[in-house]
Design a protein around this nucleic acid. Structure first.
Lengths: 253, 253
DNA sequence: GTGCCGAGGTTGGCTGTACAACTTCGGTCA
DNA sequence: TGACCGAAGTTGTACAGCCAACCTCGGCAC
């Protein structure tokens, strides 16, 4: 799948854009020219350019050539889903320390997010994540039992759960993220070295596999000043939304 | 443009999904069946379904029918870009009160974001935004001069700047957002009724027009507990990224 | 009753054609 | 010299076709 023509073209153009070949605000070559250059059909070029547009790298409208919106390198899904991949991409040393693994019945919200029957059991893994030795984030991941059992067998000091799960056939293909502010609880405070009640940047996500089956419902809480999330959206794509916060219904333990 | 076949099909399917016609985790009809039902070609159906996939509504792989990931209604770009549209979609009364309009030379970061020459002038508009009378957010928008001059003519109590700009031919087509935590400054505290230093959820964005020209560099700061941002991403799309926060370089005044 | 296999169903990738809608740019005219 | 117009360039939409890669499901064998 990765070796398909349009993906190769997209990767090549992504690199050229990141290298500043066209400059921010500059125009890309026409579709016909790219088709000739790469020796593929115009449809294949359009497929590749569609991917760049979805990434937020170019803008497009009929009658004039596509324009480069920015040259910031795109981050892959893998780098986002895996703290370890991400840390390494920064040149930092990723770390993970399991604080608690617990098998218990899912609460209503977990049942909803993981699409489980009421009373189904899940596995909660609470970990502190470090960058080059500094604690930056507390991660609470809830897995359906069949995945939780795989996770429970991972050594407590293993760095990346995501990579090990991948090796055992658990593929993360899609994710829905919610980003907001929360107050540190007692665990957060103890693990991150802040005070209970201090503000943390929270990212919750539900990940699904290629078949659409939920595989993870996680909540990451970051110390202020450690990360920011960037998102591209447009008239053509609506993957970002601002939601009105309601009082919590039945948050996890 | 809005009336194209594939957009109509996409809109129809989006509504059916939101109405729960297939259920979360349920399968959509096959492409061939949809082509027959809508009386269009399979290519047009694939184009429509591609849009739903980009929105995070469905997942797709060869060999089996597409699966519904979730039924949460998608939020349009217009609702995200315009606080007024968004507030009304919640059934709340949107408000805006201009606190300051100031024309001055752009700082280095503003020059970079708005793609202006050093020393170019910009217009900063500082506003407090309210939901049904309650202050929830402070908005600092920096515009290139030609747009700032349009904004400066808007009455101080006008509710939506975005809609008025649209009427004058300024179209927002793409945006890059950065979401993180920041500390309230003196203005924030005074306008939002919190203490200086308190944590606020910050969303910064650079918007561009259909030609790729930057039209706005804004920073919104929300009281905790008022909003959350949701994002969909996947192996196929990389519009979301986690960035390592660096110490600020030359933040705006 | 369970497991395996193959036919059929389904989507993804790639190609091609045609035409509409829009933008750019060069030439001409006042 | 500036404005206008038309030709040419460019992308978007819709269609058609073909084949590969994968998944489902029913039938058959043990």
């Amino acid at each position: 799948m990765k070796g398909t023509l349009y993906r190769k073209v997209a990767a090549d153009l992504r690199e050229a854009i990141a290298a500043g070949a066209y400059g921010s605000g500059g125009r890309l070559p026409a579709e016909a020219e790219l088709a000739e250059r790469y020796g593929v059909s115009r449809g294949t070029i359009r497929q590749a350019l569609g991917a760049l547009r979805a990434d937020g790298l170019v803008t497009s409208r009929r009658g004039t050539r596509r324009v480069v919106l920015g040259t910031t390198p795109v981050q892959s899904f893998a780098e986002l889903v895996s703290f370890t991949s991400w840390a390494r991409s920064l040149g930092e040393e990723p770390g993970g320390r399991v604080e608690r693994v617990e098998r218990r019945p899912a609460d209503p919200r977990e049942c909803e997010k993981l699409r489980l029957d009421p009373g189904a059991e899940v596995v909660l893994v609470l970990r502190v994540r470090t960058l080059s030795g500094r604690a930056v984030m507390v991660e609470r991941s809830v897995y359906p039992l069949w995945i939780g059992e795989l996770v429970a067998r991972i050594p407590a000091d293993a760095v990346s759960h995501t990579e090990l799960l991948q090796e055992q056939g658990v593929v993360f293909a899609d994710a829905d993220h919610t980003i907001d502010l929360t107050a540190a609880d007692a665990d957060d405070a103890r693990l991150l070295g802040c005070e209970p009640g201090d503000a943390l940047l929270r990212e919750r996500r539900r990940s699904t596999d290629p078949g659409g089956t939920p595989v993870e419902w996680s909540e990451d809480r970051y110390l202020p000043g450690t990360v920011a999330f960037t998102v591209h959206n447009s008239l053509a794509t609506s993957a970002l939304a601002r939601r009105h916060r309601r009082p919590p219904r039945a948050e996890g333990a």
